[in-house]
Structures are given as structure tokens and as C-alpha cells.
């Protein structure tokens, strides 16, 4: 991999809260300028790792290095990282401008200079006219951007984002995703992004660490994680997957072990139609769900499992897909993902 000093290096990071282990032996190198996501369900340890990088939690064991410097024992205010909090944590008694200028204020920068810089930062997030307002007078998306401006105005080397888009509605979230990516490119600093939204992680990241039960289950690029999941957990958590158990794999694929295949890699054909794939199984349509850009077909295979097929709505393909219709489901053998050992 990279030969330069990593922005963040975690070694043997371990965190226990009483008897429960939140994070277990996490080793991780994150490169300067990388957009790195930590993805996992709630309680998987991703936020705890973030909080240990920020300095809000002390690891039970292990070290945190920031550009080669061990900061494991440093207080949050002695670390060159800043955080965008899940609830934004904007100071309610200060104006938006004073919120953004706060980090500069505690560094002893004069009022004139820090206000000028804060205005600049607000301008960057397109909130130039909102400086005099109180945070309570802003919408969720605006608060989000203020939090971003406040954390970036002090020019941290690493920006930590703790589910920053979680509280926004879908439309705003998609818009903010684009903005985040742009801001990260502009600043050229490392972003560490914690999310439970797999789509968000896939869209934004250079690399993703998928967390499960306090450990990193898989580490790789979005396409690695999506196309080549290494475990049933990753296959089902990142995107949707049709999971073939050992027994079903024997019947349908002719080999042992667990396998999975993405709904969009499956196709459906009626009795007289031809399939493109080289493998297939017979079944009955259990349900048809229209999802706008596509149609989701739920098919009960005769082999004894239910699969989901995602068809693009690009052809005149509608009428004869009905509940109870007999179909053949086909796929390419090369699209089948092996999840290793039989369980």
C-alpha cells in the first residue's frame, strides 16, 4: 500500500465498557486525503472507534497515531482532528457566526480576524447571510452545514463525521452527500465517515471498513465490498443479497458452501423465453413490487428458497408477471459470490 505516513493508524484498538466489549483488536491505516467510511449496524463499534480517534473515549488497549504521532493519551483539545457530531452540537446560546468562530476564538485569534475567517467558511457552505441567526432558527440541513463549517474552519488534518446525514430527509441527504464529497476534494483532508447507511458509504468512500460486533469484518473499496463480500454478514448488510445455504448451493450450483447473488444479477424468464445466464432454477412468482426505476419480483424457487429479482423497468415488461406465474430464474455462474466454508 501507501509508503507515506498514514493520517490515522490504529493498532490493537480495544474498548470495553464494563463487561461488554465494544471494540475488539482493530488495526487500521487511513491515508492522508482519503474519504474513509466506517459502516456497520448500530452497536457494531464504529462510533466508539471514532470517539477514540477524537479522544472522547480512552481505549482499554491499543494505540491511536495521528500522522505518526502517538495521541492515545492526548485530550481531545490537543488533537488535530475535528468532529461533526450526529446531533451537530451547535452551541444554542451563540450566533451561527460565533459558533463557526469558536475554534479560532479559543486559539486566541482576534475577533476581527476570526469573524472574517468564519464568514469565509460560512460562505463556502452557502450560508453567508445566516451568521447573525441562532442555531435554533436554522433548518436541519443548514445546521449540518454550520457544523461542517465550524469543524473545518480550524483546518484540521482529519475530519471525523459521526452519522452527519442521519437526521436529514432523503432528498437533502442525497444533496449533502454530493456537497460533502466536493468539500472533501476541495480541502484535500482525510474524512472519516461513520454511517449505518450502506448506500451512503458506497457512494462517498474511497475505502470502507465494514464493522460487525466490534471488529472489522471487511476492508476495501466500495466495489470490493459490494462485489466481493467476504462473509454472509457483509453480503447481507451491504446491499441486498440472495443467500444460498450449503444445502441449496448443492442443489442449484452443484457445489458446497454458502453463496450469494445480488438481485440485479438475476433474471426471470417465462416458459417460452430464453435466459442469458448459464444457470437457472424453476419457481413461482410470490409477489411483484413496483419500485419506480425497477420492479422487484419475489420468487419461490422449487428448490426450497425465496429469491428477490430486480428487473429494470426499461422494456414493455409488465403484464404477464403475476403472482402464481411459473417462471425460470437465471444467472451467470460468474456472478455467484462464494462466502466460503459450509456452515
Amino acid at each position: 500500500m501507501n509508503t507515506e505516513v498514514p493520517a490515522i493508524r490504529l493498532r490493537g484498538l480495544h474498548k470495553a465498557f464494563g463487561a461488554t466489549t465494544a471494540v475488539e483488536s482493530v488495526d487500521l491505516d487511513i491515508a492522508p486525503g482519503e474519504f474513509f467510511s466506517m459502516l456497520g449496524p448500530s452497536g457494531s463499534g464504529k462510533t466508539t472507534v471514532l470517539r477514540m480517534i477524537a479522544g472522547f473515549e480512552q481505549p482499554t488497549a491499543g494505540t491511536v497515531e495521528l500522522f505518526g504521532k502517538d495521541v492515545t493519551k492526548s485530550a481531545p483539545f490537543d488533537r488535530d482532528v475535528n468532529t461533526v457530531f450526529q446531533d451537530y452540537a451547535l452551541f444554542p446560546h451563540m450566533s451561527v457566526l460565533d459558533n463557526v468562530a469558536y475554534g479560532l476564538r479559543v486559539r486566541g485569534i482576534s475577533k476581527k480576524e476570526r469573524h472574517a475567517k468564519a464568514r469565509e467558511a460560512l460562505d463556502k457552505v452557502r450560508l453567508a447571510d445566516f451568521g447573525e441567526r441562532k442555531p435554533s432558527q436554522l433548518s436541519g440541513g443548514q445546521r449540518q452545514r454550520v457544523a461542517l463549517a465550524r469543524a473545518t474552519v480550524v483546518e484540521p488534518k482529519v475530519l471525523l463525521l459521526d452519522e452527519p446525514l442521519g437526521a436529514l430527509d432523503l432528498k437533502l441527504r442525497e444533496q449533502m452527500q454530493v456537497e460533502l464529497k466536493e468539500i472533501q476534494r476541495d480541502l484535500g483532508i482525510t474524512f472519516i465517515f461513520v454511517t449505518h447507511d450502506q448506500e451512503e458509504a458506497l457512494t462517498l468512500s474511497d475505502r470502507i471498513a465494514v464493522f460487525n460486533e466490534g471488529k472489522i469484518e471487511q476492508l476495501g473499496s466500495p466495489s470490493d465490498v459490494y462485489d466481493h463480500p467476504v462473509s454472509p454478514f457483509v453480503a447481507s448488510f451491504v446491499g441486498t443479497s440472495n443467500m444460498f445455504s450449503d444445502e441449496i448451493s448443492q442443489k442449484l450450483l452443484g457445489k458446497p458452501g454458502q453463496h450469494s447473488i445480488r438481485p440485479e444479477k438475476l433474471e426471470v424468464a417465462h416458459a417460452n423465453e430464453k435466459l442469458e445466464g448459464d444457470q437457472s432454477a424453476d419457481g413461482t412468482i410470490a409477489d411483484v413490487i413496483y419500485v419506480g426505476s425497477g420492479t422487484r419480483l419475489i420468487v419461490d424457487l422449487d428448490a426450497g428458497m425465496r429469491v428477490t429479482v430486480l428487473e429494470q423497468n426499461d422494456q414493455s415488461y409488465v403484464a404477464d408477471d403475476e403472482r402464481g406465474a411459473r417462471v425460470r430464474v437465471g444467472w451467470r455462474a460468474s456472478d455467484v459470490i462464494s462466502l466460503g466454508g459450509s456452515k
Binding site: 479522544g55 485530550a75 475535528n82 468532529t83 452540537a89 452551541f91 469543524a151
Partner: peptide, 16 residues
């Protein structure tokens, strides 16, 4: 604690 954490995160010591 999130306001206090945000403040510490932005570089303020305990008294500040």
C-alpha cells in the same frame, strides 16, 4: 455532554 465535547474538540480546555 455533546456541547462540552464539541468545545473540547474545537480546542478549548476545561476552563474555557
Amino acid at each position: 455532554t455533546s456541547y462540552e465535547e464539541a468545545s473540547a474538540d474545537l480546542g478549548a480546555g476545561i476552563w474555557t
